[in-house]
Nucleic acid binder design. Structure first.
Length: 483
RNA sequence: GCGGUCAUAGUUCAGUGGUAGAACACCAGUUUGUGGCACUGGCUAUCUGGGUUCGAUUCCCAGUGAUCGCCCCA
């Protein structure tokens, strides 16, 4: 016991000291050290490190990676299949890009934007969604000269400073598909098809597709006026929030979950009944295409989306069938005015985004399969200093030959290494001990039967390859080695 | 941004105004070079800061975080 520790023990209550066991002393010492460290940190005015991710941000742990990998594979494959090229745009854009496109009055911009000023004085923001950045890149790089439609695929984190709950984080991952330069509603139908394909390919079979048309700026304004005058006539029956929305964003009243409001909303004029001729035909054609595709869609006249740039078609993909829990896995719509608004040439466009975290929550819920990578079928155990050195080289030889091997070189005893091998569920273990290292041999132990044989290390690789082949085991191949 | 609930080992949960337990997981051992089973041992926690108290993990307040509802949306 050191001098310091004795002091600490003295500090223990006399009653305790009498029967203080070693365990208690150790504990007291630890506690004391902890407090001391904290006090020292305070003294030095060091901010203690908070061992916690910032609010609304999560680590994606190894155990969850199979779901992410599955999501990546499916979304990338479908992007390729449907002719989307990948684009990656910055996480940070000038703030006014979002103000202009998404809209100043929207919650996403007004309340949830992560904006800040750089050292150089630029007003920038973390992207709250991906469409604005992709549209900016489309204009900046003159992609309007490419063959239409220009289909772009993008994934990455987006940021919204909102209050977190399940399926809603401040940093979350979006999977984004956009198509520029085509106004035919057949593209709307195809985009909805892609969105549905992605979700269902991930194993989430029960989905609802909600579609609506919110018209173009012209007919939307007429409709809005009509709606406002209707709602104003019923304003005494609306909840407090909705009275406020009446001024700010009357369309949102239609979304309100309050009973009295939904009653008012039920008999409110619907946007689909007040579309201009062009928008009406567009929507009608879209529905015909959707019928052709056998997609389970529902026209939801109350589906209004929160971003200002949408025109005509809007849609969302919901998980689950009919009633019960329904969360939006993704959504999107047409934004025919956006490119021009940002300073490009008038370009019709449509896009949608899926939320990866929500997809994964749902995948787990329906027990969808995830992508489990290749597992090693072989374990390499070593024993003794000489064998330890040799095993490092042997591991690399095996790896170069495309044989995936597990090891636990840091462990000393053969017993504990075999324990690990067993836990990993390998089919055979290669044992390289002192004796084998001297003889130039290796023991191959079959982990199922327990049988083992000693072979010369020169023949080991071929032998192992043959064994894996006989067992009908897929041997891991690195593509780069074959070219 | 508003309201409700909650916060104890890595995980799932006990428990208490007076030295905090279990299970699983992890590490090691059960004779010196052999896994699974079993047994033994070990490691590890009261979210943070104040207050009440002789004493707080427990009671009170605040903060933080999670979760649920609202808002909004992916």
């Amino acid at each position: 016991m050191g001098k310091d520790n004795k002091k600490i023990v003295k500090k223990l209550k006399p009653a305790k000291l009498v029967k203080a066991t070693k365990k208690e002393v150790v504990k007291a010492v630890k506690t004391e050290r902890k407090t001391k460290n904290r006090k020292e940190a305070v003294k030095k005015e060091l901010e203690p490190i908070v061992l916690q991710a910032p609010r609304g941000m999560k680590d994606i742990l190894p155990e969850d990676q199979p779901y992410w990998e599955q999501t990546r594979r499916v979304t990338e494959k479908l992007a390729r299949d449907y002719g989307f090229s990948r684009i990656d745009t910055p996480l940070v854009e000038f703030s006014n890009l979002f103000n202009r496109s998404i809209g100043d009055g929207t919650d996403v911009v007004e309340k949830e934007l992560y904006s800040f000023t750089t050292k150089g004085g630029d007003k920038v923001a973390l992207r709250p969604e991906m469409t604005a950045g992709v549209a900016r890149a489309y204009i900046q790089h003159g992609m309007n000269v490419l063959g239409k439609p220009v289909k772009l695929f993008s994934t990455g984190h987006v940021y919204r400073h909102d209050r977190p709950q399940e399926g809603r984080q401040r940093e979350f991952y979006q999977i984004n598909y956009e198509a520029f330069g085509e106004q035919d509603p057949i593209l709307d139908a195809q985009m909805i098809q892609v969105a549905t394909r992605v979700v269902q390919s991930l194993g989430i079979k029960a989905v609802q597709i909600q579609v609506n048309s919110i018209g173009c700026p012209v007919c939307r304004k007429d409709y809005k006026d009509l709606l406002v005058s209707y709602l104003e006539s019923k304003s005494n029956k609306l909840c407090v929030d909705c009275k406020r929305r009446l001024d700010v964003n009357p369309l949102r009243v239609l979304d309100c979950k309050e009973d009295k409001c939904s009653q008012v909303a039920a008999s409110a004029p619907q946007s689909v009944d007040h579309l201009c001729e062009e928008c009406r035909v567009h929507f009608k054609n879209l529905l015909e295409y959707l019928d052709e595709l056998d997609l389970p869609y529902t026209i939801n006249p109350r589906l209004v989306r929160g971003l200002d740039y949408y025109t005509k078609t809007v849609f969302e993909i919901w998980s689950g069938s009919e009633e019960g829990r329904k969360s939006a896995l993704g959504g999107g719509g047409r934004y025919d005015g956006l490119v021009k608004l940002l300073g490009g040439e008038a370009t019709p466009a449509i896009g949608f985004a899926l939320g990866a975290e929500r997809l994964i929550i749902e995948m787990k819920r329906v027990q969808a399969k995830s992508y489990k990578g290749l597992k090693p079928k072989i374990f390499l155990a070593q024993l003794g200093e000489m064998a330890k050195k040799k095993s490092l080289r042997l591991f690399s030889e095996l790896e170069k030959n495309g044989i995936l091997v597990a090891e636990s070189f840091g462990r000393g005893s053969l017993k504990s290494q075999l324990r690990v091998a067993n836990r990993l569920g390998v089919e055979m273990t290669l044992i390289l001990g002192q004796k084998e290292a001297l003889d130039g041999t290796v023991i191959i132990k079959n982990m199922i039967s327990g049988e083992q044989e000693t072979v010369s290390s020169a023949k080991l690789i071929d032998l192992v390859k043959r064994k894996l082949k006989n067992d009908n085991v897929v041997v891991y191949h690195d593509n780069h080695d074959n070219h």
